[in-house]
């Protein structure tokens, strides 16, 4: 009895507040827009008995999804989300790998402190971390002031409200997610392997490419997914740092819902975004499983 209660409470909570809401999104994405409250049809009418249920299912269709494929805005938004997420994941790797590498090679007594310094920004508000870049990247911002005082540029660079600002924002906020798995992989690495490679005539650089990097691949892949997956559905970064031409699907969904009040289309956008996420999530889980098996 007690066991039943223990399972039932969290189970019912998740069913009611995770699964059911998701099914509602799925259902509304198949409904039609209507000038009503709530602004879609059909409504499920249990009062009409079986006929009501049959009519309900008969009225569902894939119109909204066809609409998404026809309107170029959505196509472009999906493609540009994929591109922005991929490019910023690449930059995050480029910035994060050397830091993880240096941490793994730091003196052992320093490592916990370095770890804490990497994690600390994660505890500060995401919104504030994104906001802090607005003052840096704007036209009269600190970066332009700095570069102009050095005489490197004569005209202020336009970075804020472009895709470049979005890349910087994603790299900055998701950097810890990249560093930690790579650090974990590099820390386990046996230093003797690199010494052996060098004894056998490898240069330091080729020892890195032939030994260190392949052995940290699991961490690199995990880090890339941990950045790519949340970046794909990102809303705050493109809406604060991006420009009006920065298309990201999270932003499109938000505007479709709050500005256009088109619930069926917003729901359809959400369903397609999830479909897009399934592939990287499955690949990520397979990578994790492989790592777990390798550990045993």
């Amino acid at each position: 009895m007690r066991r039943f209660f223990l399972i039932a409470v969290p189970y019912i909570w998740l069913l009611a507040l995770f699964l059911v809401p998701f099914l509602i999104v799925l259902k509304i994405s198949l409904s039609d827009t209507a000038l009503a409250i709530p602004p879609y049809t059909p409504q499920l009418d249990f009062g009409a008995g079986w006929d009501g249920i049959r009519n309900f299912f008969a009225a569902l269709d894939f119109e909204n999804f066809t609409f998404l494929t026809e309107d170029a805005l959505y196509w472009k938004a999906y493609l540009s989300s994929l591109k922005i997420a991929a490019v910023s994941t690449f930059f995050t790797l480029l910035v994060g790998y050397p830091i993880a590498y240096a941490m793994a090679n730091a003196r052992i007594e320093w490592r916990p402190t370095l770890m804490m310094l990497i994690i600390l920004p994660f505890w500060t508000s995401f919104l504030i971390r994104v906001y802090s870049w607005m003052g840096i990247l704007s036209q009269e911002g600190y970066l332009n002031q700095f570069l102009m005082s050095l005489g490197l540029i004569s005209e202020p660079l336009i970075i804020l409200n472009t895709n470049w600002a979005v890349y910087i924002g994603i790299v900055y906020t998701y950097l810890p997610f990249m560093i930690l798995p790579i650090y974990a992989a590099l820390e386990k690495l046996d230093g003797a392997l690199i010494e052996a490679a060098e004894d056998l005539g490898c240069s330091r650089l080729s020892a890195f490419w032939l030994v260190t990097f392949p052995l940290s691949k699991g961490g690199v892949i995990a880090g890339c997914f941990l950045v790519f997956i949340p970046a794909l559905g990102e809303f705050v970064i493109p809406s604060l740092l991006g420009g009006s031409d920065t298309l990201m699907i999270g932003k499109v969904l938000w505007e479709e819902f709050f500005s256009n009040r088109d619930w069926p289309v917003a729901s359809a956008v959400a369903v397609v975004l999830l479909l897009l996420l399934i592939v990287p999530i499955i690949l990520f889980q397979r990578n994790e499983q492989k790592a777990r098996e390798a550990d045993q």
């Binding site: 059911v20 509602i24 709530p38 559905g233 999270g250």
Partner: peptide, 28 residues
């Protein structure tokens, strides 16, 4: 299986979708 799926899925679910689906539930 469904239970563990419902534990892990929200971790990777984009916030816009979680927010949208809960709002639609509350209105519903």
């Amino acid at each position: 299986t469904l239970f563990s799926g419902m534990i892990y899925a929200p971790l990777v679910m984009p916030e816009v979708i979680t927010g949208l689906s809960l709002l639609l539930l509350f209105i519903g």
